[in-house]
């Protein structure tokens, strides 16, 4: 499982891979937080998220949008994502630390997750998705 930033002039385009859908969603979370804050450590902040949607792509957008909401209103930065999908229902336990301007100011604010070109594709070795983060 991994994520990599691809060329995109206006926004941030990430290609995310996971051996399973659970891993894909976990990596997507990691990718987004790396854009926003740079490195982060697991320091006893834990949060649980439950989301349901009508399809996997909408679920991914709702999940990432929920993470954006949580990080902003709770002043937390997350780095570990344990995601479990049951069909199009997601439950996740996310862990990280409190936002510290001295250590978490290397990134940029993500304003939203775009539907443009968002498609979860099954490949031989797992799943891949390309996500545009509006910055």
């Amino acid at each position: 499982m991994s994520f990599e930033e691809l060329e995109h002039t206006a926004d941030v385009l990430m290609r995310v891979r996971g051996a399973t859908l659970n891993e894909l969603f976990a990596e997507a979370g990691r990718a987004m937080f790396s854009v926003m804050y740079g490195p982060c450590e697991d320091r006893d902040v834990e949060r649980r998220i439950e989301i349901e949607a009508e399809n996997l792509e909408s679920l991914l957008i709702d999940y990432l949008s929920e993470l954006l909401f949580v990080t902003e209103v709770e002043n937390t930065v997350f780095c570990t994502f344990d995601v479990e999908l049951l069909g199009t229902r997601l439950s996740a336990v996310i862990r990280g630390e409190l936002f510290d301007p001295a250590r978490h100011s290397a990134g940029t604010l993500v304003k939203g997750i775009s539907y443009f070109g968002l498609e979860i594709v099954k490949e031989e070795e797992g799943y891949v998705v390309e996500i545009i983060f509006d910055i």
Binding site: F69, K111, G112, S114, F116, L118
Partner: peptide, 29 residues
């Protein structure tokens, strides 16, 4: 963040309502 959330929330509602209005799009955004 207020504006970002308004956009996120309504984009979701509008996306779900496309079928209701028979609108076909080349890009869900």
């Amino acid at each position: 963040g207020l504006g970002h959330q308004v956009a996120t929330d309504h984009l979701r509602t509008l996306e779900a309502a496309l079928a209701k209005y028979g609108i076909r799009l080349p890009d869900r955004q």
